[in-house]
């Protein structure tokens, strides 16, 4: 009984980790990423999208990292719209 429980929990954790490991992540080079207080709008607006699992901003690298839900993606046009409509300029989308 204990062994079955262990196998079930182990399998769940394994599947979650496998899923995360293969989740699609892209990064975007963005100009103007200097102030966290202003950049929070980018994070907020990407998080509104169902396709997005996680948003991470790195001011040192001047990049926005997007992790997608399994099997989901966003087109370059939508990504550009979100970044530009928040007042920033995209240099490059790295897929």
């Amino acid at each position: 009984m204990m062994f079955k429980k262990f196998i079930t929990i182990f399998s769940l954790i394994f599947l979650i980790n496998i899923s995360s490991a293969f989740a699609k992540e892209i990064n975007i080079d963005v100009n103007g990423l200097v102030c966290e207080f202003c950049v929070v709008t980018i994070e907020k607006n990407f998080n509104k999208r169902n396709e997005i699992k996680k948003v991470r901003v790195d001011l040192d690298q001047k990049k926005v990292f997007l992790t997608f839900q399994d099997g989901k993606d966003l087109s370059d046009e939508i990504i550009k719209d979100i970044v530009v409509n928040n007042g920033y300029n995209i240099v490059k989308i790295n897929r």
């Binding site: 963005v30 100009n31 103007g32 200097v34 102030c35 202003c38 001047k62 007042g87 300029n89 240099v91």
Partner: peptide, 8 residues
Amino acid sequence: RWNLPASQ
């Protein structure tokens, strides 16, 4: 707005 690589 001026968005530059390391400034705004």
